[in-house]
Design a protein around this nucleic acid. Structure first.
Lengths: 355, 355
DNA sequence: CTGTTAGCGCCTTCAT
DNA sequence: ATGAAGGCGCTAACAG
C-alpha cells in the first residue's frame, strides 16, 4: 500500500541500505548515477519514510512537547506559537497539550509523551511541587519548566525559565503607588502557583517600601471551582466586584494577568465607572492589551527570548552538551498605558457608588 | 534502560505473548494467578508500553491532527481546546500545528502527520483549492475541513464542517441595515478564502435586498504582506482608517472576525470617535468580545457542536462506518451588543472629522 | 561503492 | 493457559 524503503530499493535495483544511506545524507557513499536512480524511484512511488519506524529504530522523535494551562488564553496561545516557530527552525515539531493547570492531567500528558518517544517537554506549570513528575524525570525526561522559579526540592536536571515574578508584582504595585494610590487591590485566582505567590510578594514589598500598611481585605484570591485559564476573565470580574464593594474600596487594582484585568475592567464599567477612574494593571501584555479600551497598563513578558532559551536548552541537551545553565530569570517590563491614572477622578465620584 | 515487554516477561517468568495479551485486555486467556504476577512485575519495573513500537506494529496512532491558522488568535485557541477535549474523551490525543494560512506549511505539516502515522486530520483552512493535499488524501488520509464549505472539485472523501458563512455575512449586514445604516463598510483581509468570500457575498445580498447600491470603495480587502491571524488586529485597524477617511465614510463596519473588529474599534477611537458612533460588528464571538468596551456585536459560531461533529466523523471513519454524512453546515447566531447602534450619533459629529 | 545482517519494542497467528 | 516465531519499516555497523 504505502511504499516502503524496500519497494524503492527494488524499484531502483539497489539494496535497502543504499537507499537508507541516501535518506540519511550519506550521499558520498554511492556514485551519482545510483543516487539518481534512487531519487527517481522515490519520486515515482511518491515515497515518504515512516517516521514511526525511524523513531523506533533511532529512539529519536525530534518532537518537543509543550504543555500549557490552556491555549484559550491568548497569552498561552502566543507562547505556543513562538515556541513552535523556534522549534521548527531547528527541525523539531511541537506536540501541544492543555493541562487546565491540573496536576493529574499534566502527569498523564507527560507520560503519554514519554511513551511516544518524546524526551524533552516544556511545561508551563507553576505548581510548587514537581513530585508527580519525578518518575518520568528519573527515567530521563528533560523537563523545561516555564513560568516557575526553581524550588529547593525540585527533581534534578529540571531547567527553569521565567520572568522575575516578584519584580513584576513589585513594579506593578509601585507604578500605582507612584501615581498616588494608597488603596491598591490585588486580584488573583487561588495563589497556589509559585508565580502568583511571588507576584503577590512583590506587591507587598512595594507597599511596605512606601510605608503603606497591607489591608488583608484588598487581596482577592478566591477559589472558584477551578482556576483554569478559561474563565480567568470571570474571576477578574468577580474579584473586582468584591473589592469595589468594600467600605473603603481600592482606587487601583493589580491583577495577575491580562484576562483578569479585562474581566476587572468590565466589572468596573458595570458599576458605572470608567476605567482610569479605577486604575487597573494587567500582566503579560497580550496583543489585545494595547487594543483594549482603554489600552491596558501591564507587565510585558519577553516571550521571544524565553522561547529561545527553552528550545535552546533542548537542543543542547540533545547534543549532549550539559554545560548549559539550568535556569534563566528574565526581567518583566512595565508598559504604561491608559488604564492607570492618579486616583483623583475616582475620589471625585466616590459618593455615587451604589451601596 | 527503559523496561520493555521482554523485561517484564522475564521478571514474571512468562512469555512476551502473555504479557501482551494482558496489555490488550485478553485477560481471560490466563489464570488470575499469572495475571497477578505480571501486574506486579509491571509495577515493580514501572513499565510503560512504547506507543511507538505498538504503532509500528498496528499502524494505529490514536492521535488526531489539528491544523489551524494560528492559536495566537483566541478563536482558534478555543477551537483547539474544544477539539482536544472532544478527542480526549474518546481516547485520542491531539497534535496541533499553526499553518499561518500558508498552503506550503499546511501541506508540509499534513505530510509530517501522515508519516507519523496519523490517519485523520482536522484542517482549518479556507483555501478554495485543496489540490495541494490530494497526494496524501489519495494515500488514505481522512481530511476534515473546517471553516470551509464544500467545493465542486474537492478530492473525494473530504468531510466539511463550517457555519453558513453567507448567512453570517448577510445577518451581520442586515443588522446594520435594520439599525438604519446605509453606508456599511466591509473589512476583510485578502478575500482568498471561501469563508470570507461567502461572508462578503452575504453582505452584498443584504444590501441588494434593501435596495442599497454596493459601493466598491466600501470594501477593504487589502493584502498586507501576509494574512496570517497574528496581525489581524492590525489589518482591522488599517481597514477602518482607510474606510473612514473616504469622502463619504461608512457609518458601520462589518468585519471578518473579532480580531479585525477590535482593531477597527481602536482605529475609530484613534480618530476621536467612540464606537457606537461608528458601529462595528465582529465575527466568531470570542470570549473577549463580550468583555470589550463596548461589548462587541458579533456572529457566534457553534464551536462545541462543530467539534463534536468533526471528531465524530473521525471516530466513525476509524470504525469503518462510512455511512456518515460528509458535510455539516451550521447556523451562525447574531449576538447583539453595544458596538452597534443607529447612525445618528455619528452623523451629528460628522463634520468634526479630521480631514 | 554496495549489500548483508541484526535488531528497535510490540503484536498476533499458530502451536503446544 | 502459555510459548515460539515472524514481521511492522527503518538504521547502522560490518563485510565484501
Amino acid at each position: 500500500m504505502t511504499p516502503t524503503i524496500a519497494d524503492i530499493a527494488h524499484e531502483a535495483s539497489v539494496s535497502q541500505s543504499t537507499v537508507s544511506n541516501l535518506l540519511n545524507g550519506r550521499v558520498n557513499r554511492m556514485r551519482p548515477e545510483t543516487r539518481e536512480r534512487i531519487t527517481r524511484a522515490m519520486e515515482k512511488l511518491d515515497y515518504r519514510p515512516s517516521r514511526v519506524a525511524r523513531q523506533l529504530r533511532t529512539g529519536n522523535a525530534s518532537i518537543v512537547g509543550l504543555v500549557v494551562p490552556s491555549v484559550a488564553n491568548p497569552f498561552w496561545g502566543s507562547w505556543a506559537r513562538v515556541v513552535e516557530a523556534e522549534a521548527l527552525q531547528h527541525g523539531y515539531q511541537l506536540f501541544l497539550c492543555n493541562s487546565e493547570r491540573d496536576a493529574a492531567r499534566e502527569r498523564e500528558y507527560i507520560e503519554q509523551m514519554w511513551s511516544r518517544g518524546l524526551r524533552s517537554v516544556i511545561l508551563a506549570t507553576s505548581l510548587p511541587d514537581l513530585g508527580h513528575l519525578r518518575p518520568v524525570i528519573d527515567r530521563g525526561l528533560q523537563l523545561i519548566a516555564f513560568d516557575r522559579e526553581p524550588q529547593p526540592d525540585d527533581p534534578n536536571g529540571v531547567v527553569n525559565v521565567s520572568i522575575d515574578n516578584e519584580l513584576g508584582g513589585y513594579l506593578a504595585a509601585k507604578h500605582c503607588i507612584d501615581l498616588g494610590h494608597r488603596d491598591i487591590g490585588f486580584i488573583s485566582g487561588v495563589i497556589a502557583t509559585i508565580s502568583r505567590r511571588r507576584r503577590f510578594a512583590g506587591y507587598r514589598r512595594a507597599l511596605k517600601e512606601a510605608g503603606i500598611p497591607f489591608r488583608e481585605e484588598l487581596l482577592w484570591a478566591d477559589a472558584g471551582d477551578g482556576y483554569g485559564d478559561v474563565d480567568s476573565t470571570q474571576l477578574g470580574t468577580r474579584g473586582a466586584l468584591t473589592l469595589l464593594s468594600l467600605n473603603k474600596p481600592p482606587t487601583a487594582l493589580v491583577t495577575v494577568n491580562d484576562m483578569y484585568a479585562i474581566g476587572a475592567c468590565a466589572a468596573i464599567r458595570s458599576l458605572g465607572y470608567n476605567v482610569p477612574e479605577v486604575s487597573v494593571v494587567g500582566f503579560d501584555d497580550i496583543v489585545l492589551a494595547s487594543l483594549y479600551n482603554p489600552p491596558l497598563t501591564t507587565m510585558r513578558q519577553p516571550v521571544q527570548e524565553m522561547a529561545k532559551f527553552a528550545v535552546g536548552a533542548i537542543l543542547n541537551h540533545a547534543e549532549g552538551d550539559d554545560t548549559q545553565s539550568r535556569q534563566r530569570v528574565m526581567a518583566p517590563e512595565l508598559v504604561v498605558r491608559d488604564s492607570t491614572a492618579p486616583p483623583n477622578s475616582w475620589k471625585k465620584r466616590n459618593d455615587h457608588v451604589p451601596s
